[in-house]
């Protein structure tokens, strides 16, 4: 028995079975881009034919918007960092041989590009030909640039290192907490760094005074972290609903409970998506269902897509909230026009 019934909205969806697990989705202006386990990128743009680009030889492991508009950056298990324009032209920017490129990041504010390969993070600053190489004590588990693009946070075993670029180089700030850190993100205002761990919890630090945060209680590992809304909220996966931590005020979520939305009827949320302008979150689940929820108190969940039986692995929504792209572990893509649904 399906937990969530099919929705009328689905009748308007464009479905595409790619056969290759969907590893990432992002929105670049009104183009939605998906990355896949067969090395392809797929681009969906209203009114234009879909595009398929063979960007990597193996699986695409990471995807982000590039430093200049109109292009994305990807990393793959073929050891390459590739730039692909929205017209579908790919260029290999760097190659690391047998190392997988598991994380990529770029900043429009600073013009930096960064990627990780093994224990090293490589940073290309605008106008500088060579890459700066930052080594870490263990394999890089996660990497993020701050909004200004001048600091990179790197998650690894034993904590997070924030490298801040000064006049003469990088100053590392070590944020230690024992255990393996698998993902990291800066709050949009740059005050907090949050990491997700091998253990079922998040760890965080306020950079100003290194006050630490501990966000625990998840039944499984947290794979998805996404900043949404104006507060902003940090929406996370790993529980039977979307767990959203409030980051307003001086203390953020310190000693405050999270808001939980999108009740998954006994299954784990595997993916969250949203945009910075609106207090809403899309939550994907193990059985393929996707729910829409408002973060204002008392909002009701709405089913965007019913259960399919395959876990949602990646999801993205355009900034104007008109299009949603859902990808799953088996490679099915579902491109949905949201405005057709009243209220969403």
């Amino acid at each position: 028995m399906a937990r969530f019934e099919q929705t009328p909205l689905e009748a308007q969806a464009h479905l595409l079975d790619t056969g290759a697990p969907v590893t990432a989705v992002l929105a670049e202006a009104d183009v939605l881009v998906s990355a896949h386990g067969d090395g392809t990128l797929r681009m969906f743009e209203p009114g234009k034919p879909d595009r398929v680009i063979q960007a990597h030889r193996g699986a695409v492991l990471a995807l982000c918007a590039d430093r200049d508009a109109g292009a994305v950056l990807s990393g793959g298990d073929d050891g390459r960092m590739v730039r692909t324009t929205l017209e579908g032209h790919s260029d290999c920017l760097a190659s690391f041989g047998r190392h997988w490129v598991e994380h990529v990041a770029a900043s429009r504010a600073s013009g930096w590009r960064a990627c990780s390969a093994g224990r090293a993070v490589h940073i290309w600053r605008q106008g500088v030909r060579h890459a700066d190489v930052l080594e870490h004590p263990s394999t890089v588990g996660g990497m993020a640039l701050d909004a200004r693009g001048r600091r990179v946070a790197v998650a690894h075993y034993g904590g997070v290192t924030v490298h801040e670029r000064g006049k003469r180089g990088y100053r590392p700030i070590k944020l230690a907490f024992s255990g393996s850190h698998l993902g990291v993100t800066f709050s949009p205002d740059g005050r907090f760094v949050i990491s997700s761990m091998q253990e079922n919890m998040l760890r965080g630090w306020r950079l100003g005074d290194r006050a630490d945060l501990r966000m625990a209680g998840y039944p499984t590992k947290v794979h998805g972290l996404r900043w949404v809304g104006t507060l902003p909220w940090l929406a996370t996966t790993g529980a039977g609903f979307a767990v959203c931590w409030p980051f307003d005020g001086r203390d953020g979520p310190m000693d405050r409970p999270p808001r939980t939305v999108a009740e998954g009827r006994g299954q784990i949320a595997t993916c969250v998506a949203g945009v910075s302008g609106a207090d809403i979150v899309f939550t994907g689940f193990e059985d393929g269902a996707v729910l829409f929820a408002e973060l204002s108190a008392g909002g009701e969940d709405r089913v965007v897509r019913g259960s399919t039986g395959v876990a949602v692995s990646a999801m993205g929504v355009t900034p104007d909230l008109r299009w949603l792209l859902i990808g799953d572990e088996a490679g099915l893509l579902c491109h949905l026009p949201l405005r057709a649904a009243q209220g969403i």
């Binding site: 697990p21 386990g37 193996g58 699986a59 598991e102």
Partner: peptide, 11 residues
């Protein structure tokens, strides 16, 4: 954990 997770993403 990382490598097996990566391999399971391959088509």
């Amino acid at each position: 954990i990382r490598i097996l997770g990566g391999l399971m993403k391959r088509a």
